[in-house]
């Protein structure tokens, strides 16, 4: 589904990703962990197409297409979804209008008829129920005045609406209380299917109790320095990153 080969990326001439290699197959859940500044969020931004970062080497193929060649909106329409670490507030744009535009743009891309207002509202009701998002959140402007937890729940709601093939959750668990964490994790698990893959970027093992990964990777200084099964997360929780740093430096 996703094949990343020797990916290098920089911002303001500072190289942050220094040769990432990663392959994700349909249905798999990969966790990416690592200390602050290791390049985790940069990786997700680069995959989503944020133009602040410049890719200077490497390739990414997504379902056979050259991902780096696609505009950010086309990456989304091809089925890539980024749950933002810091979702943006957009006063004046209603959630309904925002989501209807997004969903219909996806449909247009697949050469399907746009949803009518009633079809759309029906879909929205179903998905709201699925991810247990509060009804009044969707009556407001996009993320405006939302609490941290509400913003993250809103990301998961958007994911449910857009039904991506690959979801990247960028520190979706940071700053979440246990209830919000449960809602987020349940949302992700309910949307899980043999065709859908997930990348979970996180600092903490906590979220991985709820979203169980098939693989855990450690990112350090712009490279994946260790990959293993889910037990690696537990080990990291217990021992921290120092031993990995040490191993890497040696």
């Amino acid at each position: 589904m996703l094949v990343i080969k020797d990916l290098h990326a920089k911002i303001d001439d500072k190289e942050i990703l220094r040769g990432i290699n990663l392959e994700i197959k349909p249905g798999e859940v990969h966790a990416i962990m690592g200390p602050n500044g290791s390049g985790k969020s940069t990786l997700s931004s680069v995959l989503a197409g944020n133009e602040k970062f410049e890719v200077n080497e490497g390739s990414v193929s997504f379902n056979g297409k050259d991902l780096l060649d696609l505009a950010p909106e086309d990456r989304a329409r091809e089925g890539l979804f980024l749950s933002f670490q810091y979702p943006v507030e957009i006063p004046g744009v209603s959630m309904v209008n925002f989501m209807r535009t997004a969903v219909n743009e996806h449909r247009k891309y697949r050469e399907e008829e746009p949803y009518s207002a009633s079809e759309f509202l029906k879909l929205m009701r179903e998905k709201k129920k699925l991810v247990e998002i509060d009804s009044n959140l969707t009556n407001r402007s996009v993320n405006e005045g939302f609490s941290g937890g509400e913003k993250k729940k809103n990301e998961i709601f958007q994911m449910a609406m857009l039904e991506p093939k690959l979801a990247i959750l960028d520190e979706t668990d940071s700053g979440l209380d246990i209830d919000a964490l449960r809602v987020v994790a349940n949302g992700v698990n309910k949307l899980k299917s043999p065709e859908r893959s997930t990348i979970v970027i996180t600092h903490y093992q906590r979220l991985l109790d709820h979203i169980v990964p098939d693989y855990v990777h450690v990112l350090y200084k712009g490279r994946i320095v260790k990959s293993a099964g889910k037990e690696l997360a537990l080990e990291l929780e217990e021992k921290g990153y120092d031993w990995i740093k040490k191993e890497f430096e040696d």
Binding site: N50, E51, A71, E73, F84, V88, I90, V93, E105
Partner: peptide, 27 residues
């Protein structure tokens, strides 16, 4: 706002639609 624009694009909304949404939001 560039960040808002990227957020819209990341949801599959193209530049033109995004501009319209953001301009309308402003007005």
């Amino acid at each position: 706002d560039d960040d808002a624009m990227f957020y819209l694009k990341a949801r599959g909304i193209n530049e033109n639609e995004g501009r319209i949404l953001l301009m309308f939001a402003f007005a």
